[in-house]
Nucleic acid binder design. Structure first.
Length: 502
DNA sequence: GGTCTGGTAAACATGC
DNA sequence: TGCATGTTTACCAGAC
């Protein structure tokens, strides 16, 4: 977002602001009438929620379904004497606050430590604090079938972030740019018989979903972001962790299930001396829930008139119904859902540096199950890691070739292909962009591909298969190595948790 | 100061 | 032919 990017973490460091209890504005502060019982209830609920988040972390955040698991807890929380606020609105709904303002403002005095939320009231004039990657992620996640055409992504962004209604059209270019370059997003080939117009459907690559979640959580104005997390008045004895923070936004299922209410900072102002609770304070959103405070999601965007019927939901629903079995299989059957960027560089693609899915790599265990969804030859590669056992499909003509490529390429530095964190590479990383992951044959532009096809006669199938097999074996070795690393890391974390329990 | 990350602009190709 | 979509490259700025 350039100059309008949210303030740095440094600017939002807890030490730079007033403590939660000191600076909590009256709307955030729990009322004096709140009883100790309600506080204890809130603390208990927060512990339960934190445990739920821990569970989600243990499940590698492969799904947002845990958001729904937490909904009941959150709803219970709403009855604990705390109040809720809109994610994009100040608690009183009257004091817009600049998200990028690092200098104290009158609103800061009201909002305490200044870790406010994205200001909806000024949303029409201010860029949202989310990166385009996050916006796209949210849009796609908000779709019933988790896939959207770019046009509906535009629509979702416009609907939820009125700023773009009057913004120059360059943001659409940025969206497309992100979709193309960011490995987190992948195209879903449409059924040729079911045309929805131009373009393709875009979905979230499950392999990178975690990365996007991490990125979303890093957003300073995300209710669960570190920037919003407020330290308790007493230092926690447990390491600060935000991994238990679910990503929430106005369109998230939890948000909607919670009546259009994002939880913000719920227990940071509570006096909970126990170490566990201190941890919870860190891992729990700041803010309060108000009994009966229900803010409709659409009402959060008063500047722009919501579409009569969500174009995203309706259209994607229509798409899902029209595509029928194809999409249902894609939804229900992860094995036939998306080809992972198997054979990617082992160092990281720098799509997001905060997280790395341990299951990104393919093992040597290749199941011969075929996936009939694609016209291309597909093999399902069973991930034999201890983390995830989902079979993954890999187009023979792309990933095997990619594996061959990666096995033959020496490490070399290369400047990232482009910005926006879209499959970027730097340093000693392999030049493994999103297009690389699609396969060498797909990497080059059409012209170049044609030229290459002319220059280089096609190898025989046997040679290609030998090369691919060798590459897979090569990857298998890396996989085993990474498994060891993953196991050691997991073991260490487990030991650390046990030590903390003791 | 270098690196990383993200935004923006632009050119180009492709398909409807 | 115009437009939307998709890809790629380049450059810039802020954060770390």
């Amino acid at each position: 977002m350039g100059p309008t990017m949210p303030p740095s973490k440094k600017a939002q460091s807890p030490s730079s602001g007033a403590s939660a209890s000191q600076g909590m504005s009256p709307p955030y502060r729990q009322g004096d009438a709140a009883t100790a019982a309600s506080e204890a209830e809130a603390a208990d609920l927060s512990l339960s929620l934190s445990a739920s988040f821990s569970k989600a972390e243990d499940e590698e955040l492969t799904s947002l379904s845990w958001l729904h698991e937490s909904t009941d807890l959150l709803n219970s929380f709403s009855h604990s004497g705390l109040r809720s606020v809109s994610p994009l609105q100040d608690p009183d709904g009257q004091h817009p606050r600049s998200p990028s303002s690092s200098s104290p403002s009158p609103d800061d005095a009201l909002l305490g430590d200044g870790h406010s939320v994205y200001d909806l009231a000024a949303g029409a004039n201010r860029k949202p604090p989310y990166s385009f990657s996050c916006l796209i992620f949210m849009a796609i996640e908000d779709a019933p079938n988790k896939r959207l055409p770019v046009k509906d992504i535009y629509g979702w962004i416009l609907e939820h972030f009125p700023y773009f209604a009057n913004a120059p059209t360059g943001w659409k270019n940025s969206v497309r740019h992100n979709l193309s370059l960011n490995k987190c997003f992948k195209k879903v080939d449409k059924d040729r018989s079911q045309s929805i117009g131009k373009g393709s459907l875009w979905s979230i690559d499950p392999e990178y979903r975690h990365n996007l979640i991490q990125a979303l959580k890093k957003t300073p104005y995300h209710p669960y972001s570190p920037g919003l997390a407020t330290p308790s008045t007493s230092p926690p004895t447990l390491p600060q962790t935000f991994h238990h923070s679910p990503p929430l936004w106005s369109g998230s299922p939890l948000f909607r299930k919670n009546g259009g209410v994002l939880l913000q900072g719920t227990v940071s102002h509570l006096s909970v001396p126990s170490p566990l609770t201190s941890s919870t304070v860190y891992g729990f959103p700041r803010g309060v829930i108000q009994n009966g405070a229900r803010v409709r999601s659409q009402a959060l965007f008063p500047v722009i008139r919501p579409l009569p019927v969500s174009p995203v939901g309706s259209r994607t629903s229509a798409i899902r119904s029209s595509l029928g079995d194809y999409l249902s299989r894609g939804q229900d059957s992860p094995s036939c859902y998306s080809p992972p960027p198997c054979g990617e560089d082992l160092q990281d693609d720098h799509t997001y540096s905060t997280a790395k899915s341990p299951s990104r790599l393919c093992s040597s265990q290749v199941a011969a199950s075929s996936c009939p969804l694609d016209d291309d030859d597909i093999i399902a590669v069973e991930i034999q890691s201890d983390v995830k056992t989902e079979p993954r499909e890999i187009p023979l003509d792309s990933h095997l070739a990619a594996a061959a490529y990666i096995s033959q390429q020496p490490l070399r530095g290369q400047r990232r292909s482009s910005g926006s964190g879209a499959g970027t590479l730097a340093g000693s990383s392999l030049p493994w962009t999103k297009s690389r992951a699609r396969g060498i044959s797909d990497t080059l532009p059409l012209k170049k591909r044609r030229a290459a096809a002319v220059e280089k006669p096609p190898e025989s199938d046997d040679e290609e298969m030998k090369e691919a097999a060798g590459s897979l074996l090569h990857l298998a070795g890396v996989r085993a190595c990474l498994n060891n690393i993953t196991n050691r890391t997991a073991k260490g974390q487990k030991e650390q948790k046990e030590a903390l329990r003791n």
